[in-house]
Design a protein around this nucleic acid. Structure first.
Lengths: 239, 239
DNA sequence: CGAGCATTTGACCCCGATCAAGTGCCGTGG
DNA sequence: CCACGGCACTTGATCGGGGTCAAATGCTCG
């Protein structure tokens, strides 16, 4: 189940042709600029559902082309804590651009494809393009903000609020991708949601069904419909 | 109590003369390089104990020169969640280098001094110094790693583990500064620790006293002595 | 179609939140 | 310098949310 990079099928492709260009590293670039960085050719990698990619080397980040994945910390002290779920357009490995020991892994929740971005290569082409550096810094900064937001969610005492925050978070992720923000399919299990939120899978299940009884959502298996997003948001405000 | 930047006393000073040079943005630079960036003059700011600095503009980061501070998210939905305690040599504002709305504040736990680093200025001088960009990226990446570590702590179900992780975390911070890692003074209240860890102040108090009874620590008011760090670390591993 | 995982649901119980009361500590002002 | 007010901290009692264990049912994929 462990996926070695060397075993994987990789292909060169052109950044300017990437369907994710507008939300990826190359975002905010106009066509002229996009053509300029055509020389940023890089590989892509396919990961099948449930396969695991152990991240060890520090010179690479990954952009999700399609699919969905979970990022989990690999530590003896901490039982495989999931810190993030990633959808297309998101970057993986921003937490790994330094020398301190820090192991984590990427596991595909469905068949997925990542593009492999060599950070030195990115450095090279951004040397005379300061806006690229700025843009990359902004992406990293947003990542920190996201983590802080998650920290605040995990401090919300009630499990109900955690689950609601999770649903709204997934909703906004799908919205960003241009999909319906009220009607989506969860790619992860109740157990994985629980891991992510710091609660048990039974509690996740109970709360989802409670929210359904309260007519705020509809949930059948992993199909979610948010019936009343405003009411959900209000729940986060209460006391 | 709200501290306006315009009201504050600021002074220009020279980066190469900063006592924090070796752990600040200029870290890993040799003396020759340090001289090169002498033109990175910038201001410093003094914040008195309990004073608050609201961060709004996105072009600035702050380096702690001395003192200690807490960083908290300002959101209507979340009651002033503390996401970090900062000691000298740490950077503040890395989560704010993007355009998305994101308010947070810095509150001094004791009289402190920050140096104000204009990010555009930093950009300017690092344009022909790629290693500076790389270094800054590494610092940001570490910040993400730290947040992920905190996320995993907040998922540790037991409050006891949270408190132990907090103590070990503070210990390593003081160690990095060259102070004793087994004997330090907490600058924050039980309430603030509880906020940070997502538990109540009463629970913090009870657990600290429990750890004392178990002879792993000594604590009197805010003076902490770690008597058996190995045992503390083992507590995190158990089941 | 069947094995094994995912999910639901119930019962029980414990950890930690909440409320409350008392003590300690610190800074300010008389 | 002392007295006082208010915050910080401790400690106790109670209670409920959510963890744990268990069993049944539902899905999914080989």
């Amino acid at each position: 189940m462990l996926y070695q990079k060397t075993k994987s099928s990789t292909t060169n492709y052109d950044c300017s042709a990437c369907i994710l260009g507008h939300i990826c590293v190359a975002s905010d670039l106009n066509n002229t600029e996009l053509n300029k960085i055509n020389n940023l050719k890089h590989e892509k990698i396919q990961i099948k559902k449930k396969e695991k990619l152990l991240i060890s080397h520090q010179q690479t980040i990954y952009g999700v082309r399609y699919g969905s994945l979970k990022i989990q910390i690999e530590k003896p002290t901490i039982f495989n804590k999931i810190v993030e779920f990633c959808l297309p357009g998101e970057l993986i490995g921003l937490n790994n651009l330094h020398n301190e020991k820090h192991e984590f892994s990427v596991i595909a929740l469905e068949n997925s494809e990542l593009c492999i971005i060599n950070i030195q290569h990115l450095d090279h082409i951004s040397q005379d393009r300061p806006y690229l550096q700025k843009q990359f810094r902004e992406i990293m900064s947003k990542e920190i903000t996201k983590s802080h937001y998650m920290l605040s969610i995990l401090s919300l005492t009630s499990s109900k609020k955690r689950v609601i925050a999770f649903l709204l978070n997934m909703s906004s992720k799908y919205e960003k991708l241009g999909y319906s923000s009220n009607n989506f399919i969860l790619k992860m299990s109740r157990k994985e949601i629980g891991n992510f939120l710091g609660i048990t899978l039974e509690t996740v299940s109970r709360i989802l069904n409670q929210l359904m009884k309260e007519k705020m959502i509809l949930i059948k298996n992993r199909n979610v419909i948010l019936k009343n997003k405003e009411q959900l948001k209000n729940q986060l405000l209460n006391q």
